[in-house]
Simulated scan of single mutants.
Amino acid sequence: MEVVILDDARDLASVAADAITALLARKPDAVLGLATGSSPLAVYDELTARHGRGEVSFAQARAFTLDEYVGLPAGHPERYRTVIDRDFVTRVDFAPDAVRGPDGLADDIPASCAAYEQAIADAGGVDLQILGIGSVGHIAFNEPGSSFASRTRIKTLTRQTRLDNARFFDGDVDQVPTHCLTQGLGTIMAARHVVLLATGASKAEAVHQLVEGPVSALWPATILQHHPHATVLLDPAAAGRLQLAGYYRETFAGKPTWQGI
């Protein structure tokens, strides 16, 4: 696991965008994993700007989203498919139907989840997965206690996660759905490169557990310690609990410029 701590959140977004730009340059038909939430927004803004300057194209790329609320109607402003389209997909040049997400309105949810897993496999797997992390250490909607071997499935959201997401629902936790479909930890771990972004002091404890704590289902993101190519991008506030912050800064500053993340 590589930990990168930078003072400016825009610099973090640039580092993540550099990795995606380089991936698409060498593999134009790469498969991306897209996350919603506040953490990746600056990355999507940076990629959109680069696309506008002709520096990167998504025309041959495909993408899969991490999760979806169960029961929100099509077109709902907080349905994750609506959000990812608004925040990123429609701002660049993805081909029609190149981006797919779990179907939170499926009549047969288990069958739909199995089909989603198969679609990822048929695409050749995810080359680069963007992630955020919740205050309780969840990635996607894999709440504490999730199996490290889990695959796409329905999950019940904890009250803390619903409280965290209430800001997207006019601050009303009762409007936040109680269930979601989510890629499992096993699904996420199958991605060839995982890039996790976290900013703000509210993420500091989860980041501390992720990077320096024991691997435990109590903090689901800790499974990423076993990933062969995981990059964690942090601002100083999110890195505030890290014991080895100085070491992480030193090693990143000393990397060869050609190496990337």
Rank of each mutant, 00 (worst) to 15 (best):
L185W: 04
F169Q: 08
R159L: 15
A204G: 07
Q160V: 09
A190N: 12
S135D: 14
A166P: 00
S146V: 07
T182K: 04
S202F: 09
G124P: 01
D170C: 07
I188N: 05
G171F: 09
D127C: 03
V176R: 08
T158H: 13
A140I: 06
Q175A: 15
P144Q: 14
V126A: 10
A166I: 00
L131V: 12
I139F: 06
L210N: 09
T156P: 09
D122R: 01
H193N: 12
G134S: 11
E143W: 05
H138R: 05
G125Y: 02
T187L: 03
T161I: 05
L196N: 05
L197A: 03
Q118G: 00
G125Q: 04
L185A: 07
V173Q: 04
D164W: 11
D174Y: 09
S147M: 08
G125P: 02
D164N: 14
T158Y: 12
V126S: 10
G145W: 08
A191P: 04
S147L: 13
E143G: 09
G200T: 02
D170R: 15
R167V: 14
I139Q: 11
A206C: 11
T187Y: 00
T187G: 02
Q129V: 00
L181S: 03
L185V: 03
Q209C: 09
Q118E: 10
V194F: 02
L157H: 08
T199F: 04
A198Q: 14
A201S: 15
G186R: 03
A206D: 10
H208S: 15
